[in-house]
Design a protein around this nucleic acid. Sequence first.
DNA 1: CAGAATCCAATAAGATACTG
DNA 2: CAGTATCTTATTGGATTCTG
Lengths: 121, 121
Amino acid sequence: MATSDELRIDAPHRELLDQILDKWSLSVLNELCERPCRFNELRRAIPQVTQKSLTATLRRLERNGVIEREVVSTRPVAVRYRITRLGKTLRPPIDVLLAWAAHHMPAIEHARATFDSASGT
Amino acid sequence: MATSDELRIDAPHRELLDQILDKWSLSVLNELCERPCRFNELRRAIPQVTQKSLTATLRRLERNGVIEREVVSTRPVAVRYRITRLGKTLRPPIDVLLAWAAHHMPAIEHARATFDSASGT
DNA sequence: CAGAATCCAATAAGATACTG
DNA sequence: CAGTATCTTATTGGATTCTG
């Protein structure tokens, strides 16, 4: 039993995971799990991300309640992003995922090579 | 200790997770974890996916070694997709993820509502 | 510093038609 | 049945400029 509907992936769940597991979110969450960061700190920590994409990612994560944005009114302004309590609960799932990736990476690279050579020939 | 580099998300890992956790992969893997499926069975099981996206998703998953494609040469041909041994190891990470989503969905919807009303005003 | 605005190129997604 | 091919249309991503 529990084979058929143990896990239904309905649209809301898919959409949610899409928003939290996208290209840059994992890196951002990973940074913010370690310490609060300012905008340009994050840019430096994740060099490949553009300012535009980083902004979009931060907004999305904030909207979903996993990070929060605090404006420190100095001159010039400082903005500090930090992980929320809800966001912290994401750590175990993400860890499991990264552990999976790290562990199986060799097998996957082998599979890719096999696939590519089979197609390329 | 173990705060700073406990988890580095390097490019290969990010790319890998991108390929396996994308919009349709979770649904496809979920179906194939339960039983082998033919192409059109998958289409019916995941009604929103287009034929084009499903084909792309299946190729990508096959390339990464988590599913395999078997052609049964009847007339007309049948194609059977099934999960591989490697693919089965994805189940626990995915389960953890879906459990997280299911459990925290209410909190997230609340966060979204709060965020949206704060912006909209 | 922390973005918003804009423009443009590249890519992805949808719809349709066709094939072994 | 299980796709491929093609065309068109969003949607994304990068680069650049500007601002409180």
